[in-house]
């Protein structure tokens, strides 16, 4: 259980103990109560379902109300499953807090990027575009989309304008600068996908280099 659901608060700067000013993203992570425990007997695999965020009872469907009642927890806005080696240690209703990141050096953050709507190739694929002036008549277009009568079609996967953003992205190995357990806050070095207020998932870095 090394994962939490949270909310991106925003970015700022903090001075570290060795007087270096580092850029940080403030994330409010947890507390995430365990809503359901999945075991091989019941579901075929080990996992726990955790929740995050307050939700009014009147905005929760009856079936979901029953789901929360069974675990003895409040209504949760977001639910997410964590696969585990062994779910036997988990306890229904037990709240996971940001303290699990206290001793970690690095975390991964998963979130959806900012939505950019229908974008052209210059923004979406970093095409260079054409000259702005001197009668070029070719400004921010893609160009060179295909060949001639053969193959007579545009190749699949050709980079073209289209919807851009709101895609899930993972930022790996963000350094944990500070954990404020009493405020459920974690400060990670660097930026995190998405706008302020977006839902993020913080987990222990999976590609962390083993300390020698």
């Amino acid at each position: 259980m090394n994962q939490l659901i949270g909310k991106k608060i925003g970015m700022t700067q903090v001075y570290t103990d060795d007087n270096v000013l580092v850029p940080v993203t403030v994330i409010e992570a947890g507390p995430c109560p365990i809503v359901q425990i999945k075991t091989p007997e019941t579901d075929g695999y080990h996992a726990v379902q955790i929740g995050y965020g307050a939700k009014k009872e009147k905005n929760t469907s009856k079936s979901m109300q029953g789901h929360f009642k069974k675990a003895g927890v409040e209504q949760q806005r977001i639910l997410r499953e964590i696969r585990l080696e062994d779910a036997a240690e988990a306890e229904l209703g037990q709240a996971l807090t940001v303290e699990i990141f206290q001793d970690l050096e690095k975390v991964d953050v998963i979130a959806n990027t900012k939505g950019r709507g229908f974008s052209g190739v210059v923004k979406r694929w970093n095409f260079h575009g054409g000259p702005a002036s001197h009668g070029s008549m070719f400004h921010r277009r893609g160009g060179s989309y295909g060949m001639c009568q053969w193959p007579g079609e545009i190749q699949k996967g050709k980079k073209m304008p289209g919807h851009y953003g709101t895609e899930q992205r993972t930022v790996q190995n963000l350094k944990v600068v500070k954990v404020l357990a009493d405020k459920n806050l974690i400060l990670v070095k660097g930026s995190v996908p998405g706008a302020n207020g977006t839902t993020v998932i913080v987990r222990q870095a999976i590609k962390q280099r083993k300390s020698a």
Binding site: G10, T12, V14, Y15, K183
Partner: peptide
């Protein structure tokens, strides 16, 4: 500014 961020930076000013 976000009040949470304000609180974090306030102590360093």
């Amino acid at each position: 500014m976000n009040p949470i961020i304000d609180e974090i930076t306030q102590e360093q000013l």
